[in-house]
Amino acid sequence: MTSPSDPGRLLAALPAQDGPAMARLRERLADQAQREGILDIAYRTLETPVGDLLLAATDEGLVKVAFAVQDHDAVLSHLAGSISPRILNAPRRLDEASRQIDEYFAGRRTRFDLPLDWRLSKGFRRAVLTHLRDIGYGRTESYAQVALAAGSPRAVRAVGTACATNPLPVVVPCHRVVRSDGTAGQYAGGAEAKHFLLNLETAA
């Protein structure tokens, strides 16, 4: 209980929360930071049939795509530690990526044409993910086939890890890698999301 003479209440006419002003100020901050080249990571969330996707981009390109089940807050914290804490919810940088992902889910796009920032993936994993872009829309390969294509036929498990840690799911199509017996296998966005994407691509 605050007493009637609480000095804080004397200032109560100053709104503690002013949503419209904050929205305006956030937008202005994002624009200014972008212009000054200090917005290291811009992000937004995008509604899709497989749930809200987090999209994050550096100056170089799309750096991270994450499913809701991956916990967007945790992903942003991780980006703060691994790339930079200068992170703002600034949708404009993700306009083109959002448009292409929307088209993909609408069945109107079969490949992504976006600048990608690969810095979150290194070495063999990166070699695997780079190869994934050669697996065409609506097609699948087994983990063993991908291992072979990546030049390490025995590294089947490592291919599984590379797919599981793909920083750019959907855009870099790790969902097109399935088990040798034809079942879908694991997916960062959950098995259901993987089925959805595979069905989407075979239906189109």
């Binding site: 002013d18 703060a80 200068r86």
Partner: peptide, 21 residues
């Protein structure tokens, strides 16, 4: 590990606006 700056804006932005006002 430092928090994303967006969280700083969310948590302290309204307070700083009151102070500035």
């Amino acid at each position: 590990m430092r928090r994303p700056f967006e969280q700083i804006v969310t948590e302290y932005g309204p307070m700083v606006l009151r102070v500035c006002r």
